[in-house]
Design a binder for these strands. Structure first.
Length: 342
DNA sequence: ATTCTTACA
DNA sequence: TGTAAGGA
């Protein structure tokens, strides 16, 4: 196929194709006499991959390394990158939604009073700045795969805590009480240990993880789970999809602010009467003069501060209760508060 | 008529 | 990446 034909079929300009070639993303054969490019099916397929990844906002340089990692015509790898694309688009969509919301508030302000507070303008500016910078966030997602290969070993090493780990997973399943055919989401599902418990109880489970390697292992262990590559702060699902959202030993990886954002995300994908269950390392009542006492406390490297988390549940109409498994390990369950009609 | 390369916006 | 120019 000649370049114009390919360009028309893929809806891009010939110039773009030559540009990608110049950047080392393609290397179509060229005719001996006239130097006309001749695109094989494989070339076209590869080019389509480039286009898809570009549309997801991936920089040329990253596409090059991604393509280097996968052979030609590798559908499995492409699926992963397309899932990554969905994940990124979801996250951009959320940010756009925020910009729309602040814009609407500004419109309302301009309507009522004619003044427009300066701080709102700044807020809008920062929001769109984040949106622009977001296209550079691909790099973060690469590193997680390095951890994945080690994951199984680390879990195996954790035998000391394994009893409690298992007990916590049982406990969370017991508290959330999945019913037959309910839809559930496991965030940071890893190799699917927690999700599998809920699936056995009759629920239809989806699992999100940042690492494709992790999900690959998960698919092998639990073929019945639907898995998606995604971020805790931008779950790759639409609103009100799930009856419950659960997570184990993943939440503490987030910073304090991110934990709250993540709860917002959980609420977004939850149905109106949805439940939340979290099993993780948690502490409460850290003394105000924390500097000394925290240092003196023994183990927790990263830990969830319940005093920060619990107010969120109250503010968002959840009734939360915490059950202690051991000194650090807790199980937090939250149910939608039922309006009392008296 | 098409495509190619190169330079520049 | 788009556009323009000059050649094959």
């Amino acid at each position: 196929m000649r370049i114009t034909e390919v360009a028309n079929k893929l809806n891009i300009s010939p110039r773009a194709i030559r540009f990608y070639e110049e950047k080392g993303l393609l290397s179509p054969a060229k005719h001996r006499d006239n130097q006309y490019r001749d695109f094989s099916e494989q070339d076209v397929w590869r080019l389509q991959t480039v286009i898809s990844l570009r549309e997801a906002g991936m920089p040329i340089a990253d596409i090059r390394s991604a393509l280097a990692g996968m052979g030609d015509n590798d559908a499995g790898e492409l699926q992963y990158y397309l899932e990554l694309q969905r994940s990124v688009m979801m996250s951009e969509w959320l940010q756009i939604k925020q910009v729309i919301e602040t814009t609407e508030r500004m419109i309302a302000l301009v309507k009522s009073e004619r003044s427009l507070p300066l701080e709102h303008i700044f807020r809008l500016a920062e929001a769109s700045k984040e949106l622009r910078e977001h296209r550079g966030n691909w790099q973060d997602k690469w590193d997680f795969d390095l951890l994945a290969s080690t994951h199984d070993e680390r879990v195996a090493e954790n035998q000391g805590n394994y009893a409690d780990y298992d007990r916590a997973l049982d406990l969370i399943a017991e508290r959330v009480r999945p019913k037959d055919n309910e839809l559930g989401l496991d965030i940071g599902t890893g190799t699917g240990n927690l999700a599998a418990r809920f699936k056995q109880a009759g629920a239809r489970m989806s699992g999100v993880d940042q690492s494709k390697e992790m999900l690959r292992l998960c698919q092998v262990k639990h073929p019945g789970l639907e898995t998606r590559v995604g971020n805790f702060l931008a779950l790759p699902y639409l609103e009100e999809q799930f009856d419950f959202v659960v997570s184990s030993f993943a939440f503490h990886h987030l910073g304090p602010e991110q934990q709250l954002l993540s709860l917002d995300e959980m609420k977004r994908v939850l149905k109106s009467n949805g439940r939340i269950g979290i099993a993780d390392l948690m502490v409460s009542g850290i003394p105000a003069d924390s500097a000394d006492s925290v240092a003196s406390r023994s183990q927790p490297p990263e830990c969830i501060d319940l005093d920060r988390l619990l107010p969120w549940f109250a503010d968002n109409g959840f009734r939360a209760d915490v059950q202690r498994v051991n000194e650090w390990l807790h199980v937090l369950c939250a149910y939608k508060e039922v309006e009392s009609l008296d």
